[in-house]
Design a binder for these strands. Structure first.
Lengths: 145, 145
DNA sequence: TTACCTGCAAAGAGTTTGCAGGTAG
DNA sequence: CTACCTGCAAACTCTTTGCAGGTAA
């Protein structure tokens, strides 16, 4: 049954009725072991292929945003005008290949940040995001200091 | 004379003729000691106030992009659909207050990153960007592990 | 004079919203 | 039956592009 209840529950917990379209989206996002990074556009293509029907962007946006609000997805900070989402909602970091727009997770244990400065005036640290930009070897490296 | 030659040279080095509009932009960006973070929209408002005339977005975009290409500005990775630029082109990091969209620089010396993982398959690290999201104390903190 | 620049406006890309018909409960 | 959902399309925001008149060299 493809763990139907798992997806139904996730949708209900996010305040959404389990419909065909949303179940398809939920399966794509959460039926996997590894992290999934995606844009709305990519998700649309995969979902439409899976159910062999059009899914409107309205449905994609409302579903993805409901999952995000519930904490099942998080948005990634990247330059450019497309919004990237990540099924890994824990604090963790990324390699980002600007040539291919490819994102790769870096486990939190694999980076140590020390010497953290204090947050400004009455503010509190909520999240830390490290993005390591990579490119082919022939590209020049920026001055890292 | 407001260091006119300094700005004329920066514009010429970027392949641009020094016009009134572009000199105004250059002064806003580079007549300062501290880092300046901005969006096109913010820059437009400041520049128009300074010269008391409209500046078209076409001019703002072509000037800012020429400066960026030349390495006088860099784009910051942030979520949301607006592009943020930074007059600090050295590798450095930011506090980001999502409530106010306020960015604050963190000097590279004030953060230590150790234990860096290797870049994937034949790629080389070009830049490291750390974004520390802050919010008011009453907001809940994300699971940082 | 020539090549470049300006402002305007139209075109694009991504996202959000409004709505009439359809479906879950 | 009611409330919610769907696809479509219009509206919006930000950015890019095309163009006719204007300006730097």
């Amino acid at each position: 049954m493809d763990h139907l209840k798992f997806h139904t529950d996730k949708l209900r917990a996010s305040g959404l009725r389990p419909t065909k379209q949303r179940l398809a989206i939920s399966k794509i996002l959460f039926n996997r072991k590894e992290t999934f990074h995606f844009t709305i556009d990519q998700l649309k293509k995969i979902a439409e292929k899976n159910i062999k029907k059009k899914i409107s962007v309205a449905t994609l946006y409302n579903t993805v945003h409901a999952f995000e609000k519930k904490g099942y997805l998080k948005e990634i900070s990247l330059k450019g005008n497309k919004t990237f989402f990540d099924t890994n909602t824990r604090s963790h970091h990324h390699f980002y290949d600007e040539e291919t727009s490819q994102l790769t997770d870096i486990k939190n244990e694999n980076i140590s940040i020390s010497n953290l400065p204090k947050a400004p005036n009455g503010k509190k640290i909520r999240d830390i995001e490290v993005t390591i930009k990579v490119a082919s070897n022939n590209q020049k490296q920026k001055n890292l200091v």
